[in-house]
Design a protein around this nucleic acid. Structure first.
Lengths: 213, 213
DNA sequence: TAGATTGTTAATCGATTAACAATC
DNA sequence: TAGATTGTTAATCGATTAACAATC
């Protein structure tokens, strides 16, 4: 299998950004792409790109580069994006609603099959075509769907409580958009998506950026 | 000034997560907090927490820890969150709308004063109390407001084009929620917020996580 | 005083970058 | 062939972790 045990987080985070670049070149009719070209486009080091790509198990040909078809396949397989994965979303508030409408997910094989909320005015409705179900019966429904991935967009105060229900229902991957740090068993993967970290980076970059003349 | 030239990105990204923990303890009436306590709460190494905190210029007292009042001040000052910063948002689609409704921003001193869109049906309306203005006059309005920060939530195809307008209008910090890699002058800070990187991490963690029994 | 915790210097670890032979 | 690019090994760099004296 291509998926390495000793994966490097930085590599995994960079890999998805290569895909649109490669796809653009494919659209232009190219059959091969070199690490040099990808690196230039994304303002990265070409050695780094080559090393990242080698993680996926692909091999290139000197002078030509990597066969585009095989390369996209290899990246997607490495990331687990080659087959679709069902997911549910909990908390159909502002952010939850936005994520339900984020069509790009399907491109990555993520298929949100249902959303849950506690607000009785939302239950039964559809948001961006996805049905909102009662969060109280979440446990049973998740087991029925046999779904493994959950997007967590509830208020931070209920995050841990909700996560506990999810884990008990068989969820093994939680994409956590709340600010709360979750405590889960070690067989459950949690990916923290933290806006305040991003904002902190922006501000510090602005403070330290060279001033415009 | 506390803001170091040689800031470490990892430290900057971790610092915001300390704030809610510290605030919780403050609510409980505590006056001091130790790195050990913060580390335990966030499942981090206490040495790492101490080193991160020292970046802000705060000094603690052995045995007691850090004075909570001073510590929150120091972190917020370091991150530039002590004074409010005006910002505009471009692209009032799904994600843009969600961000307009994300009240947490105010806590970090980010104040979105207006949003821009090209959709004539949205122009003139208010979303979460924020007025939607015509994107065609964006240039002039940004200069009038003298605003420096922009949240970019337009479709990826128009990202570079929009960024060029923003930069010409005097924006020096772009929080980029599009998948596109932006090319900007070096005095402009760009913070890329990339959902596909987060999803990639989640999937790889799930693939490599120890199986449940 | 004894012990917890700070602040700092040194050691380890991992990721990025450099170097270079292999090859199409 | 000559030159661009791969794949890989070595060197550098930075971040995390360990160690420990200082101190309240």
């Amino acid at each position: 299998m291509a998926q390495a045990k000793n994966f490097s987080a930085s590599t995994v985070r960079r890999l998805p950004s290569y895909l649109p670049v490669i796809r653009d070149l494919q659209q232009e009719g190219k059959e091969f792409v070199s690490a040099t070209v990808i690196a230039e486009e994304l303002q990265l080091d070409s050695i780094q790109v080559r090393k990242d790509l080698s993680m996926t198990g692909i091999t290139g040909t000197p002078k030509k580069g990597f066969p585009i078809e095989d390369l996209t396949d290899a990246i997607e397989r490495f990331l687990g994006w080659d087959s679709t994965s069902d997911a549910i979303l909990v908390g159909a508030g502002n952010l939850g609603t936005a994520l339900l409408g984020y069509g790009e997910f399907l491109l990555h094989g993520l298929n949100i099959i249902a959303a849950f909320d506690v607000n009785s005015r939302k239950i039964g409705a559809r948001i961006h075509g996805i049905q909102i179900l009662n969060a109280e019966t979440m446990d049973i429904q998740i087991k029925n769907f046999a779904v493994k991935i959950a997007l967590l967009t509830v208020p931070a105060e209920c995050a841990q409580e909700t996560a506990d229900v999810l884990v008990n229902a068989g969820i093994t991957g939680i994409w956590n958009f709340t600010g709360a740090k979750l405590k889960v068993p070690e067989n459950v993967a949690v990916q923290q998506e933290d806006l305040s970290a991003g904002y902190a980076m922006l501000r510090v970059k602005m403070i330290t950026a060279p001033a415009a003349e």
